[in-house]
């Protein structure tokens, strides 16, 4: 009986000791991280397009921090979802089609001879990328445009187009080399094609 008692006492004392140690360590060596909302906001593409159902990226970041789904951002696409999943340590899910689909990056373009100068698009632009004044022709500053689409809807004469950004030699990316045939299990379909190309 006394052995058992000794064991229990010893274990209890040890538990208390280690608990105290851990507690101390967690206070003493606390790592001050960015608030999670800032980190999420940094990942979001900042188009401020509202396709997620929130009025801008930051509100959506706040919503995610409060547990909203991470797959409501079409401009960010799958890569943003993966980055968020990585940050929040949750599973990466496909984009929610309800909020739109991932489109190639584009900028707004105003067909200037059709513009009546109503300023409605200027008011809609979340990043002040449209230049113009009442009764003056408007134009988009392409380098500032985030491609959010928000100016297209309010235009009374439908003179705004979303033009996909073209690849120039300066923005061209080297493609990933073809995958060598050695991955595990995940590439069943590719094995056949690979064997054909080799033999």
């Amino acid at each position: 009986m006394s052995t058992i008692l000794t064991a229990i006492i010893v274990l209890f004392v040890l538990a208390v000791l280690f608990g105290a140690l851990l507690g101390f360590a967690s206070v003493r060596f606390r790592v001050e991280g960015n608030p999670i909302v800032d980190q999420i906001d940094a990942i979001l593409p900042q188009t401020q397009c509202g396709q997620c159902g929130y009025p801008g990226c930051r509100p959506y970041a706040e919503a995610i921090a409060n547990g909203d789904a991470i797959n409501k951002c079409p401009p960010g696409g799958q890569s943003t979802i993966e980055a968020l999943a990585d940050l929040l340590d949750v599973e990466a899910v496909p984009l929610d089609a309800e909020h739109g689909e991932e489109k190639p990056k584009s900028v707004a373009f105003i067909r200037e001879d059709e513009c009546i100068g109503c300023t409605k698009c200027i008011q809609a632009c979340p990043v002040d990328a449209i230049l113009g004044a009442a009764k003056q022709m408007h134009t988009v500053i392409a380098s500032e445009c985030t491609g959010c689409d928000l100016c297209v809807e309010p235009c009374p004469v439908d003179c705004i187009d979303m033009i996909p950004i073209e690849t120039t030699p300066n923005t061209w990316k080297w493609p990933e080399p073809p995958s060598p045939m050695q991955l595990i299990a995940t590439d069943r379909g590719r094995g056949v094609a690979a064997s054909e190309s080799v033999s």
């Binding site: 593409p45 900042q46 188009t47 801008g56 990226c57 500032e144 061209w172």
Partner: peptide
């Protein structure tokens, strides 16, 4: 390299957009 550069460019653009917003 080009992936990293693109990512950086996009990040920069996003930060810029955030600032403007």
């Amino acid at each position: 390299k080009s992936e990293i550069r693109t990512e950086e460019r996009e990040q920069q653009k996003a930060d810029h957009a955030r600032e403007r917003f």
